[in-house]
């Protein structure tokens, strides 16, 4: 394997921490923001119009309409501030980049939903991934408490 790819795999989030994203996905991004001294999670929901880069440099553009104004945010997927990405709806699109949505308003911005057997499989895989992740986190937390227990 390429050295850089290997390094990025180690430094970035593990594979089951990120969902399989595609342009057209409707997502809720749980993003950690600072408010003065406090930190809290803010949810930014919108449509993924582009996923680009690979490895630790992978990022996505999420677009949503706020008070009639289009707002786009770029999220580096491996950023520690991106706590979770929940896919609420998958779109059936024929393009990798949906930049054409920028020129559209109202009803014409709708994207057909990805349905059928394939979509069901993808959803099942996503559920399995979430379950795996939860299990991994639980065991890591258990290991942590066990460690600190030994120290005491």
């Amino acid at each position: 394997m390429d050295l850089i790819d290997g390094i990025e795999k180690e430094l970035g989030k593990s594979e089951n921490e990120l969902p399989t994203l595609r342009a057209g996905c409707q997502v809720d991004v749980h993003y950690l923001i600072r408010e003065g001294e406090k930190e809290r999670i803010q949810i930014f929901s919108g449509m993924v119009i582009a996923v680009r880069g690979r490895g630790i440099r992978r990022s996505m553009i999420v677009r949503r309409i706020v008070q009639g104004e289009g707002v786009e945010r770029i999220f580096p997927l491996h950023s520690p501030r991106v706590k979770d990405i929940v896919i609420t709806r998958r779109g059936d699109v024929r393009r990798a980049k949906l930049y054409y949505l920028r020129d559209r308003t109202g009803k014409s911005t709708r994207v057909k939903e990805f349905l059928g057997d394939k979509a069901r499989n993808v959803r099942e895989l996503e559920k399995v991934r979430r379950a795996d992740l939860a299990a991994a986190q639980a065991s890591a937390a258990a290991a942590d408490t066990a460690d600190s227990g030994e120290e005491d």
Partner: peptide, 22 residues
């Protein structure tokens, strides 16, 4: 020189860096 990548700090800032096998 092996190539470039990026590193995330704890606060989420990404820094571009070069990996050198030395």
């Amino acid at each position: 020189k092996k190539g470039m990548t990026q590193l995330f700090a704890e606060d989420g800032t990404a820094t571009g860096c070069t990996v050198v096998e030395a």
